[in-house]
Design a protein around this nucleic acid. Structure first.
Lengths: 166, 166
DNA sequence: TATTGTTATACTCTATAACTATA
DNA sequence: TATAGTTATAGAGTATAACAATA
């Protein structure tokens, strides 16, 4: 009941001070919470552009890999091909990208960005960059770079790749 | 097609080299990918103990806040009260914790860990710590501490809290 | 036989809303 | 009226499995 009293006086605060101290010692939990915050904010940032995090990611990959197939997009984004269909449907319906036939293999679609899609990307890219700058304003530029680096190395370590293949 | 060729020779690799370079410049995307890896591995680590990430987190909070109410647990974990019910049901069914009546307020449940629950926690805590050590073996201890710190500060910045309340 | 894209389906996690019993 | 817990339901996001067309 001392706990309920404190949280009653500060109901919106992210938990009573240190009430999840034990839990926060785990990196996994911190990453999970950070991810929730970031994804929520990303969703808000993308909504005015008619994008979700999934379609934003797909657009980014197609922009830098023109003509990529849906299977390869599936590999890059680490989602199943059936999930790619939904994302590509949505982007194609919005006029952002197109499925084009590939000569030599009639099974495959080559994904290409439309002119409108490229214009959209330029705006969205800037919006997300600005947004992240605000979200991470508690860190200076060097710290953000460090965070990048640490996450990249943590998620690319031989061990985690090895476990993924099991 | 150069892309499909490469990914055909290394199908399980996390994407062709740099094919998501543009996307990876966003911290949000890195955190998302890191989170996916970590949560998958956490799930595997917890499964032998009959726990999921949700029940693990709840157990941790109840361990460090004996007698906490479900509403306060809901605040600390940032999930809705309806979600807490499911988690507590599962933990109570497993004999890990108990709902106890609170004298003075018959609406409230005081959550307490059983002896078996405490024994389980000691084992699980060690398993998860060991597991994270392996998962983050690409980083040294100081770097892990830095990662902790940066995530904590990024997710606790005044701006992100402010946006949360809107 | 294997692969690309597709569809249908199911599962997990979480949110919303309505309800009850208490306060 | 407001709060604690509960129930039912619905929505993302993603996974699995089966299928048609093509290789």
């Amino acid at each position: 009941m001392p706990l309920s009293k404190i949280s009653a006086t500060a109901p919106k605060a992210p938990g009573t001070p240190a009430s999840d101290m034990l839990l926060r010692q785990f990196v996994g939990y911190r990453v999970k919470r950070a991810n929730l915050l970031i994804q929520d904010d990303m969703a808000k940032t993308l909504e005015p552009f008619g994008l979700r995090t999934g379609t934003f990611s797909a657009l980014a990959v197609v922009i830098s890999n023109p003509g990529i197939s849906q299977s390869d997009l599936s590999d890059v984004l680490n989602i199943k091909r059936s999930g790619v269909v939904v994302v590509v449907d949505e982007l194609e319906r919005a006029g952002v990208l197109k499925r084009k036939p590939v000569k030599g293999d009639r099974r495959t679609n080559a994904l290409t960005v439309t002119a409108a899609g490229r214009r959209l990307w330029n705006k969205v890219e800037k919006a997300v960059q600005d947004h992240e700058a605000v979200l991470f304003s508690g860190l200076d530029l060097e710290e953000i770079a460090t965070l990048h680096d640490l996450l990249a190395r943590a998620t690319k370590s031989p061990i985690s790749d090895l476990e993924k293949e099991q």
